[in-house]
Design a protein around this nucleic acid. Sequence first.
DNA 1: GTCTATATTTAGATAGAC
DNA 2: GTCTATCTAAATATAGAC
Lengths: 190, 190
Amino acid sequence: MTDSATTSSGKRDRLVESAKALIHEQGVHPTTLADIAERAEVPVGNVYYYFKTKDEIVAAVVDEHLQQVRALLARLDSRQTPRTRLKGLARNWADAAPAVAQSGCPLGSLCSELAKRADESPGASAEIFNVLLSWVEAQFRELGRRDAPDLALMLLSGVQGAALLSNTFGDPSVMTRQVRQLDRWIDSLA
Amino acid sequence: MTDSATTSSGKRDRLVESAKALIHEQGVHPTTLADIAERAEVPVGNVYYYFKTKDEIVAAVVDEHLQQVRALLARLDSRQTPRTRLKGLARNWADAAPAVAQSGCPLGSLCSELAKRADESPGASAEIFNVLLSWVEAQFRELGRRDAPDLALMLLSGVQGAALLSNTFGDPSVMTRQVRQLDRWIDSLA
DNA sequence: GTCTATATTTAGATAGAC
DNA sequence: GTCTATCTAAATATAGAC
């Protein structure tokens, strides 16, 4: 019903969810197909019925993240002003602080690992940050800032860098402190 | 001469340098001992004379980074004012933009990967960012800012996040733009 | 100290029964 | 569509000759 394949029920989705969680916790490379299958409660060999290679699972996880980001931004779009929309995004990150301290930003650490691959082109993971960056930029532009691209870069970088430090130190407060600071920074803009 | 072992010449250092470069380019997990040995022009089996495990090589690479950061900060300490010292650090990052766009920040991507490991404690890689953070904080305090810890976090996060985005997009200008912005931000502080 | 050959383990992937 | 059993390849690590 949801996609082209004639798949009956749940297993494919469970595998993607399992892979998503494990990749967040352990990283792409250390996560094995056996790990993924076990957590999804699917026999190992069966994985290959749904995905021809490990790369295909990773691609599905990236796509899942992309859809999730799109859904989040769509929800935020219902808010009245660009400022409240930006603050909603910030709030979202602050809420994720404990998970981020433990395993890093699910998007950031994934992109960090995928960017190292020999692929020439930016790849699908870049699209996630592209979507985020464009959206934030649009909010700043609506706030009347002509330097919207720079401001968007500053905000996203600030969050991603804090996520990395928070994870490195295993300390959620690093993330929350930085988000609070960025929140004030948004307020300070004309 | 340089360390406790009775090692005669070069090989250990070559292995660490090789590992450092490969880990930057490919990441920790994908880099094999065979890769490291080949690049260092040392036979594979011989690696185990210098390092008992792969983890030991990684630890040596982390330590190498730590020493390098300490040396950089020591050089910057010779500058006259805290502001010129901070700008020297920023300049250093801007110069690294091409390499960062290609393979990420050597420190950031390494910490990102190591933080995911099951280890409870922050580990040695956290010490690198600790040193950097403390140093930057000291500069801001010398500038008379009582919010020095927050400012230091903002600066380091801003750089690390930009490095991640720059690498994700494979675009050096993302890094240089952000550093320029942070440079202006430093100027704007009382 | 240096190196070759090899043991061990594990992960990705496939074949084919049901 | 589902699953078991297994092949193949590669990576870490060791034994032991020189």
